[in-house]
């Protein structure tokens, strides 16, 4: 029998990813790992992990990885890549990490056009700490720190990171994709593949935002979480490629 599908070569069969059932971090991790496998980059890759749920994946991938301080992944990645251009550096970050505490590092690395791949998990809340309001929380969305719903007067409007970054001159590939159904997962895989390939080819900074499910903190089952993405989130966060140098 011919083997047509297998787990990414460098992932640990013994250690699970540690994410909640239905969480999109698992999908994003698999896509990232498959992309690295596709281009044979496992030995050159350096993953920069965030503080937050994203970091739970670090034991599953047997790759070089370094857990950055909260929000600082883009700064850590910048220096590693500048001094070690042969390494393939991926900054994997959630919305609290990238868009709240790490906004300065995120924007400056993008504006310098560092030859990095940034994968941004937008699940509209702080997952690890129990579902607090994030910069990406939708208006009206109830979280543990916006119990009456996010209010534009009180909290400001959600940050649209992909659009913000696409406005800068230096980034080369910027887009938003989603992980709530198979059709979108396939598109997200293509985007991640492209972003990593562009780094290999020295083409510069890429930013892949992934609309992700957080069933635990949304207090919805995975099926209803996927429905929420379709019904509510994609209205606020349109999918698509906002910038493509190629």
């Amino acid at each position: 029998m011919e083997k047509i599908y297998e787990r990414p070569s460098f992932t640990s069969p013994a250690i699970g990813m540690g994410f909640c059932p239905g969480c999109s971090h698992s999908t994003a991790h698999k896509l990232m790992a498959q992309a690295l496998d596709k281009y044979g980059l496992r030995d050159k890759a350096v993953l920069i992990y965030p503080v937050g749920c994203g970091g739970l994946g670090k034991d599953w991938v047997r790759l070089n990885n370094i857990v950055a301080l909260h929000g600082r992944a883009a700064a850590v990645g910048t220096a590693i890549k500048k001094c070690n251009p042969e390494n393939i550096v991926i900054s994997y970050q959630g919305d609290g990490d990238l868009a709240a505490i790490g906004m300065a590092e995120t924007m400056h690395a993008a504006n310098r056009g560092e030859n990095l791949t940034v994968i941004f998990i937008n699940n509209t809340n702080f997952g690890m700490t129990g579902g607090q309001m994030a910069p990406t929380t939708l208006l009206g969305q109830r979280t543990t720190t916006s119990p009456d719903g996010r209010d534009i007067e009180r909290h400001g409007a959600p940050f649209k990171m992909a659009e913000l970054i696409a406005e800068l001159d230096a980034p080369k590939f910027v887009g938003r994709f989603a992980l709530h159904d198979a059709k979108n997962v396939i598109k997200a895989q293509a985007a991640i593949d492209k972003a990593i390939r562009m780094q290999v080819e020295g083409k510069g900074y890429s930013f892949v935002e992934l609309i992700s499910l957080c069933p635990t903190n949304w207090k919805l089952n995975p099926v209803d979480s996927a429905k929420r993405v379709e019904k509510e989130i994609l209205k606020e966060y349109p999918l698509g490629i906002f910038k493509d140098f190629e």
Binding site: I48, T78, I80, E105, H108
Partner: peptide, 19 residues
């Protein structure tokens, strides 16, 4: 690198020193 802050600068050192 002139970092965007002292925080970014020490984090750059953290990353590259690990290599």
């Amino acid at each position: 690198i002139q970092g965007e802050s002292e925080i970014a600068s020490i984090n750059m050192v953290y990353g590259v020193a690990a290599t």
